[in-house]
């Protein structure tokens, strides 16, 4: 059962209705996404605006709590896009998706030797593999020892 536009509008909560009377819905009115001046017709009621004459900033007409209230209520009725933009706040999943987590929450810090251990082991492994070349560089006579080792090497045949 789908409602008509008029029937659906009758279900608009009074809080949102009041807001839309004061600040018409988005496509019919344009709102700035950044703080503006108080004389700007497109000033955003959720953002602070500057009085250019006195140089003083007027606080946002709607506090963070009230703007969150309005946004969440509008979202329930599918009207979130009609509200003036709230670029400085994120809600629900969006808030958690792009969240910059604390490093301590993401991984354990450990002690310094513990943190450096995997790199150290890798370096050691690589060094052991290339040990012959390293020794050869320092001691050229080592090539005889390598040759003897090659001779003595056990094979299947």
């Amino acid at each position: 059962m789908s409602l008509t536009a008029k029937e659906a509008f009758a279900k608009l909560p009074q809080k949102l209705h009041t807001f839309f009377i004061k600040h018409p819905p988005r496509p019919l009115a344009q709102y700035a996404t950044t703080p503006s001046t108080i004389s700007d017709p497109q000033k955003n009621p959720f953002l602070p605006n500057k009085n250019e004459e006195s140089g003083k900033w007027h606080a946002a007409k709607y506090s963070l709590r009230r703007s969150a209230d309005l946004y969440k209520m509008a979202l329930k009725y599918g009207l979130a896009e009609l509200l003036p933009p709230i670029p400085h706040k994120k809600f629900h999943e969006e808030r958690y998706n792009d969240k910059k987590w604390m490093r301590g929450l993401l991984f354990q810090k450990k002690r310094k030797w513990e943190r450096e251990l995997p790199t150290k082991l890798e370096q050691r492994r690589v060094a052991m593999e290339n040990m012959d070349e390293t020794i050869l560089k320092a001691r050229p006579a080592y090539k005889k020892q390598i040759a003897r080792r090659e001779e003595k090497k056990r094979t299947w045949f």
Binding site: K6, F9, H17, F20, P27, Y77
Partner: peptide, 23 residues
């Protein structure tokens, strides 16, 4: 001066709401 919501706005809001509620 405060004005009551225009018919256009009412229609816009109503249609959006009806669309959302239907889902």
């Amino acid at each position: 001066k405060l004005e009551p919501l225009s018919e256009e706005a009412k229609d816009l809001i109503g249609s959006r709401m009806a669309e959302h509620l239907a889902k």
